[in-house]
Amino acid sequence: MVYAVCFDYAMNVSEGRAPEHPRGLGRGPGIRGKRVVVTGGGRGLGEQIVRLLVAEGALVATCARTAGDLAALAASLDPKARERLYTQALDVTEPEQLENFVAAAEKRFNGLDGAVACAGGSRGGGLERSDPADWAATWAVNVGHTARLIRAAVPHLRAAGGGSVVVIASISGWKPGPGAQYGAAKSAQIHLAASLARELGPDGIRVNTVSPGSMLIPGRRWDRMRTEQPEAFAAFVSAELPGGRPVAPQEVAHVVAFLLSDWSSGISGAHLPVDRAQNAPAPDGY
């Protein structure tokens, strides 16, 4: 049976299909019943993290800027799974909205066991095409929101006897590429997580970073490039992706779920790339 599950999963990956969640990833003491908040859960990677956690029996609260995305996510779940999901539309950079969301999630679930800082993004172009406001906005949505999420969650995690925090950074945080403000912010997230792992360790709170490589998400940059510029996309994959394709968001979600689970209890302060050994984060290389 184990061989069959692994074989099916490997076939999906080798054929370029987004892999299904492996059966039993978080069943039993690993993730079932965990109470987790996830920012940026309306689309892309955040959505896949939420779907996996809910499917594996966790209670999940997620937020996003667009209420319609959250409504569509909830509507796509079966009724029993929907009962384990709490959503709220908000901007994580707005004062007090994120903190109020964490408090509401803790009240709804009667405690918290984990948090995932997945909301992020970038504003502005190259150095001469970006102003200080672009840098400040990029910092706020990545580093600022992560620090505020963890700060808001810590009292509840401590009250539960400890917990796990996962920060979603990027390979751009240590592999140079265009968009210096984004790379600098992601680098700061990696350092932030390692520092807080030391600070919060005595309370039984683990903090780790996951850095995805280029992800193939419908409608996003690499998916558009694949359909609109197939030759350029093929050249990018050949030059920078020895695994033969970009990583799927579901694959990153598996790692996040593991770090939230009891099975990763010995891991804290770690930085885990999920990038198929990708080299440069952009087609133009280093």
Rank of each mutant, 00 (worst) to 15 (best):
S14T: 13
Q229I: 00
E99S: 14
V116E: 05
C63P: 00
L98A: 08
R206G: 05
G121Y: 11
H271G: 04
V252Y: 02
D91H: 08
R84V: 05
Q48H: 10
D78R: 14
A270Q: 09
S122I: 15
S76M: 02
R65Y: 08
A239Y: 00
G163R: 11
H21R: 15
R158C: 03
V166T: 02
A277Q: 10
L241V: 09
P230M: 04
L85Y: 08
Q229S: 14
L90I: 13
S172K: 12
D8E: 14
K80D: 15
D113S: 11
G16K: 03
G26P: 11
W174Q: 11
L59R: 13
C63F: 02
R276Y: 15
A119F: 01
K34G: 06
A197K: 00
A235C: 09
D223V: 03
G68Q: 15
A185S: 14
G177T: 12
G285Q: 10
V256R: 03
A232V: 07
S130E: 11
S211D: 11
A140W: 01
V102I: 14
G201M: 06
A180P: 09
L192N: 03
G121L: 06
R84Y: 01
M215L: 15
A180G: 11
F101C: 04
A103W: 07
V37N: 01
L25M: 13
P19E: 02
S195Q: 12
A75D: 14
G28Y: 07
E56S: 08
E228K: 10
R129L: 13
L196N: 00
A194Y: 00
F7K: 15
A58M: 07
R23M: 08
G213Y: 05
M11W: 02
V166G: 02
L127F: 15
V38Q: 05
L157Y: 07
R108W: 06
P29T: 11
A159Q: 14
V2C: 12
D69G: 04
T93S: 00
A239T: 12
H156L: 09
A18I: 03
S14D: 09
A67I: 01
A153V: 12
Q250A: 13
G126I: 09
P273Y: 10
E20D: 15
L127N: 02
P178S: 11
C63Q: 01
A239F: 05
F7V: 09
G219W: 01
I190D: 07
G266K: 09
A147M: 10
N279W: 12
P95H: 03
A160T: 06
I190H: 07
A197T: 05
R198E: 12
H21G: 11
A282Y: 12
P29W: 12
F258G: 07
R32K: 14
N208G: 08
V60E: 07
R43D: 08
Y86D: 09
